[in-house]
Design a protein around this nucleic acid. Structure first.
Lengths: 212, 212
DNA sequence: AAATAGATTGACCAATCAGTCAACAAAGTT
DNA sequence: AACTTTGTTGACTGATTGGTCAATCTATTT
C-alpha cells in the first residue's frame, strides 16, 4: 500500500525514509512543537491549550512533547527564551551603519517595530508572558541579557548628555512600553504600508522628544 | 455544641444568625468571590486557579460561584468590568480644580499612577487581562466607555493646538502604555514615597514632552 | 403562617488534564 | 552485525477540572 522513497533533507544533512503520500518538509519535531505551542497559546491562552492539542497541532505523539520538555511549564519558559533569542538576532542588523546615538536608537526602534509587525504571534506571546505569573520563572539577568545592545547605547547617550540622566533600565522600560503602545495601535487600526511607515517614523520622534 | 448569637451587620442593614466561633465581617458573597478570584488570578494566572480554589478562598460553597456566574469565563469578564468601573470612579476626583489642559492631564495622570500603586492586584489583573485572549470577549466600546473623560480632554487639547494632532485613541494608547511602563519601574525598584513622587512628577513631564 | 423566590450548600459527575511507560524505530558507534 | 543511544509512539492513569443538581436555608410578600 504505502510507497516508500528516499528523500534528502538538507537542513539536517541526512537521509530519511518517508511515505510518498504525505511527504512534507522535515523539521525538528521540537521546533514544530514550539511553533504549535506559540500559535495556540496566543489564540487560547496558556490555559485553554492542553498539551494534547499542542502535540496534535505539531503532528506529533503526546509523549514526544514530554520527551523534550519535562513539564508544560518548562515548554512555556523554553518557548519564551527561544522567541527572545530569535528576536535579539534580528535586531542587531543595520546598527553599524549609524554613527550618531539618535541614528542608532532610531535604527533599533525601527527594527523592533518591524519585527513586531512581521512576527505578531511571537510578539503577542512575549506580551502575554510578560504580564503573566510565568515571568517570575525567568531570572532578571536572563531577561536583560538580550537587551545589552540597547542598554549600552542608552548609557552612551546619557554619557554624551543627549539622553536624560535617568537609570538606563528605566529608560529601556519606557521605550519598550512605547513600542507596545504603538504596536497595539498599528494592529487595531488597519492601514497601508505607507501610512504605517509614517506612523512608525513619527512615533520615533515622539519617543526621542520624551527621552532626550 | 455551637453557640448561636445574633449580630447586626450595618452594611446590609439586617440581622443575621452566625456562630460565635467564626464571627466575621459580612460581605456579599459575590464580592468575596470577585476579591478571591482577583487575588488568585494575579498570583497563579487564569489557568492555575481552579474554580474550587476561588470558592474556598472566598469562604463559599462551590455551587455558589456558578449561581452568580454561569461559567468561569463569565466570572473573569465580570471581574474585569468590575475593576474597570471601580477604577474609573476613582480617577474622576480632583479634576475640576484644574483649568488648563496640561493641569487636567497631569491631575488625571497622577490619579492613575497613584491608583495603580494603591491597587496593585487590580492593576496587574487589568494588565494580564489586556494581553490575554479574554480581551476579545469585551467589546471595544465597553473598553473605551470608561475613558471618555480622558478622550474628551485629549480632543480639547488637540483643538487648542496644545497636543499633537493625532487620533485621540492613539494618544490615549500611548499614555496608557507610558503608565504601564512607569508602574513596572516603580514596582520592580523599591524606593521611598518621596522618591516615588519625584519619579511620577518627572515622568509626567516626559509624557507631556512627547504628546505636546 | 403559608407561600414564593432567591441564596447557599456540598456531594456528585463526565470530561479533561498533565504526565507515565513499555515497546518499538532510527541513527550513530564499535 | 551487534550494541547503544536517542527519538517516537499512543494507550493508559490518577488527579483535577468546570459545572450540575436536588435539597436546604433565609428573607420577603401575601
Amino acid at each position: 500500500m504505502t510507497d516508500w522513497s528516499i528523500y534528502f533533507f538538507a537542513e539536517k544533512g541526512r537521509w530519511r525514509k518517508e511515505t510518498c503520500s504525505y511527504q512534507k518538509l522535515y523539521m525538528d519535531k521540537q521546533k514544530e512543537l514550539l511553533a504549535a505551542a506559540m500559535k495556540l497559546f496566543v489564540e487560547f491562552g496558556f490555559h485553554g491549550t492542553p498539551t494534547s492539542k499542542i502535540a496534535k497541532e505539531a503532528g506529533v505523539a503526546n509523549g514526544t512533547l514530554f520527551h523534550y520538555y519535562k513539564t508544560k511549564d518548562d515548554l512555556i519558559v523554553a518557548l519564551y527564551v527561544d522567541i527572545k533569542m530569535r528576536m535579539a538576532g534580528c535586531l542587531m542588523t543595520g546598527l553599524e551603519n549609524e554613527s550618531s546615538i539618535k541614528g542608532k536608537m532610531k535604527s533599533l526602534y525601527l527594527s523592533t517595530m518591524y519585527w513586531a509587525m512581521d512576527n505578531q504571534y511571537e510578539f503577542r506571546f512575549i506580551q502575554q508572558f510578560h504580564s503573566s505569573p510565568f515571568l517570575s520563572k525567568v531570572t532578571p539577568e536572563e531577561i536583560k541579557d538580550q537587551a545589552t545592545a540597547h542598554l549600552r547605547m542608552i548609557e552612551d547617550g546619557i554619557a554624551q548628555k543627549i539622553i536624560k540622566p535617568l537609570p538606563v533600565d528605566f529608560i529601556y522600560t519606557l521605550i519598550m512600553s512605547h513600542v507596545f503602545g504603538v504596536y497595539q495601535y498599528l494592529t487595531t487600526n488597519e492601514m497601508d504600508a505607507e501610512k504605517r511607515k509614517a506612523v512608525i517614523e513619527e512615533t520615533f520622534e515622539m519617543l526621542w522628544n520624551m527621552i532626550s
